[in-house]
């Protein structure tokens, strides 16, 4: 299995006195399909923001041998870490194919950049097939349906040649069929990529997660297989709404 492990140690993110991520340790092995779950405000998105360089954090985040904290966003991306956002962000004025081509091109030299796009790179063609968007390649991304935009984003990560994908609520707002299709897509992508998914949807998690980390109030509450996490008493408490008990301890 290609890829590097993501190792997070004592990660802390503070916004004007409010601690959103409070000393998180996290190990994600190459090839894992990890779900990050937790109630609203647990720090899931902030954790991903810190790993990808969007917010400042203290502690340590290593990807393989590389320390990520302190690097600018685009350098982290070039190390092979890609992410999506809660609301799908694609380049609406550009076609599906152009979106993918740009995602595939961060390492291009000046000469290639200054010339017109003629052939479709093989990676782009493969991503079009994988995401099922081949028929829509010449459509502007702005007219795609919500689910299709999410798939396009995942496709962009694939052609970007990332080794670690961080997906922020990829199935939010999707229909049941779209969820199934997205899950299948994740499973296939997970075969040769490390994937971390932030999700609220428990059914979706049960169906597709390989391992699960539960965050609560900025800390790791529980970690393990789906079955292990479901059996955890603390997790049950948090999800049953008696969150205050646990928060009081930490």
């Amino acid at each position: 299995m290609s890829g590097a492990a993501l190792t997070v140690r004592n990660l802390r993110v503070t916004f004007d006195g409010f601690t959103a991520v409070d000393g998180v340790d996290l190990d994600i092995a190459p090839g894992d399909l990890r779900f990050l779950i937790g109630p609203n405000g647990a720090g899931k998105t902030t954790l991903v923001d810190a790993v990808t360089g969007l917010v400042r954090a203290t502690g340590s985040v290593r990807f393989g041998d590389e320390e990520l904290l302190g690097r600018p966003v685009h350098r982290i991306a070039r190390l092979g870490i890609g992410r999506t956002f809660q609301t799908a962000t694609v380049f609406e004025q550009l076609t599906v194919e152009q979106n993918l081509d740009i995602a595939a091109g961060a390492g291009r030299g000046a000469w290639t950049m200054l010339r017109r796009r003629r052939a479709v790179p093989e990676r782009v063609e493969r991503a079009l097939e994988t995401t099922g968007l081949a028929d829509l390649r010449d459509r502007p991304a702005g007219v795609l349906a919500h689910g299709q935009k999410q798939w396009l984003e995942i496709g962009m990560l694939l052609v970007q040649d990332v080794r670690l994908l961080l997906l922020d609520e990829p199935v939010a707002g999707m229909s049941h069929e779209e969820r199934e299709a997205t899950g299948e897509l994740l499973r296939r992508v997970g075969e040769d990529h490390t994937v971390v998914v932030i999700e609220h949807d428990m059914d979706f998690m049960r169906a597709f997660a390989r391992s699960v980390t539960v965050l609560h109030a900025g800390k790791v509450l529980s970690e393990g297989s789906v079955a292990e996490v479901r059996a955890d008493a603390e997790v049950q408490e948090v999800y049953l709404g008696r969150a205050s008990v646990v928060a009081g301890e930490g």
């Binding site: 990808t52 600018p72 966003v73 685009h74 991306a77 070039r78 890609g82 992410r83 956002f85 962000t89 694609v90 380049f91 609406e92 004025q93 550009l94 152009q98 979106n99 081509d101 740009i102 995602a103 091109g105 961060a106 390492g107 291009r108 290639t112 950049m113 200054l114 010339r115 017109r116 796009r117 962009m156 970007q160």
Partner: peptide, 29 residues
């Protein structure tokens, strides 16, 4: 015109529409 139709031209439009997203693709906008 060559710049407009080149890959750079497409990238420039992408930066205009969503600078942050481009950054996560590994470019420095």
């Amino acid at each position: 015109r060559q710049l407009f139709v080149s890959r750079y031209g497409e990238l420039l439009v992408a930066v205009r529409d969503s600078e942050e997203r481009v950054r996560f693709l590994g470019y420095d906008p």
